[in-house]
Design a binder for these strands. Structure first.
Lengths: 240, 240
DNA sequence: TGTATATTTATTGTCGACACGAAAGGTCTT
DNA sequence: AAGACCTTTCGTGTCGACAATAAATATACA
């Protein structure tokens, strides 16, 4: 499972275009952190990244600063920077914010969506259906996030969209953490709820959108809580 | 009132402690941007900052990256970075998010506040009263922001607190923008509303806290909207 | 043997310099 | 005189090296 070797080959002789250094390092690291390829709590070695990406420490550091602003990485002054731990004690606050953002963004989408946006939301929903059919858990997690992010964008409130995407990303890490528990019938429930959500948005029915979003949020929170409750590992409460 | 001269003298011989470089540059620039001492749209010259802060470009750049993540600064690739403009077309979204955060954080504070937090909220409220009495508009804006930020912190939800502080900061720029219109009786209205807010939080009365927060948010939104409406400058709608 | 202190090592924070890109200004052609 | 092309200039993006700091290790002492 460690194909870091191939991932390590960012250093292809063709020199990157000026100004893309930070962007690639940032994007790559962000993806790897969210996919748990770099586990929470890992120490990040700037010099290794230097070799891996074939660039100097300066752009690497700027990428790390950005990741720190995203909350994906924590910097210990004069010491090291580590991948942000998953703090289980913070879960209630996370669920609270996530639920609220589900509702707010879905409501706004119902008001502000254009036809084009409905189309692209639908296409993502189809992608989700395909992932469910193929039992591709990784794909489900990914597409599900994009589905809701697209709804948020249709709502056209930058502040909500940014917070929501952050929460959805954090949720991605959580879901991957419980990857193995994912073989139940829940995905199809989500599928139906998504369908109803799109319908409400398309109908510009704010009240209905709110109701559906609320139910969907509750569903997801319950699921994750169940995973956590079922998790019998000692010290699971611990920040890591 | 332009003490830029002194502000420009960050370069005192005593060498900063290692690792405080970025922090000081970040904090100083952030404050100056929020106080409109550096007007929206200004070009930021890294080299001038280099001379001003007496440090190399590396820490300056890292500070700018952080400011960019905060949305206080916009980076044009390979060109320059400018202070984030105030986008009046985005106002409705801003008001929406601000109002929601007023409500959510106040409600949470009513549930989660400790005695100590009540005390420090009260002390900020007193500071606000003093600023009102002294007709110190600048102080009012500052303390008002800290008052609400402290309430948010008492609510103990990191996600809300971060978004809210960002919104409050953006609001600070807006209010300063209309600095001159600030000589009315509104501040004392706010004073009363604050008082009621604290009472609701202390009583752990969520419903009342919500009601008060809602009214307060409406009040503030109406005020800013009135300022904007009264603003007869041509092209006021423009992003700048 | 255990504890406190000195030394080494590893890694970060910072620096000065170079290279590439975009904008401004100058030159040539029609 | 107007427009296309070349040149210069300014500022950013990146680099390799140095200095400072904290952990790890070794040493001295009780």
């Amino acid at each position: 499972m460690n194909d870091q070797a191939s991932t390590g080959a960012e250093t292809n002789g063709a020199k990157r275009k000026r100004g893309l250094g930070v962007a690639t390092a940032y994007a790559t690291l962000k993806r790897e952190i969210l996919e748990l390829r770099i586990p929470p709590g890992s120490l990040i070695d700037e010099i290794k990244l230097t070799e891996r990406f074939g660039m100097s420490r300066t752009p690497i550091r700027e990428a790390l600063v950005k990741l720190a602003s995203d909350g994906l990485v924590v910097t210990l002054p004069n010491r090291s920077t580590v991948v942000a731990p998953i703090d289980f004690l913070e879960m209630p606050q996370f669920f609270d914010a996530l639920s609220l953002m589900y509702r707010v963004t879905t409501r706004l989408a119902a008001v502000n969506r254009t036809e084009d946006e409905i189309a692209s939301i639908r296409s993502l929903q189809e992608g989700y259906a395909e992932a469910v059919a193929a039992k591709d858990v990784s794909g489900m997690i990914e597409v599900n996030r994009n589905f809701h992010a697209e709804i948020a964008r249709a709502g056209k409130n930058r502040y909500y969209t940014e917070l929501f995407e952050r929460l959805l990303d954090e949720g991605r890490r959580l879901l991957r953490f419980y990857y193995s528990s994912f073989n139940d019938e829940l995905p199809s429930v989500y599928l139906d709820e998504h369908e109803e959500m799109v319908a409400a948005i398309e109908a510009r029915d704010v009240a209905r959108a709110d109701r559906v979003a609320r139910a969907h949020a509750d569903q997801i929170v319950r699921q994750i809580q169940a995973y956590i409750a079922a998790d019998r590992r000692v010290n699971a409460e611990l920040t890591l």
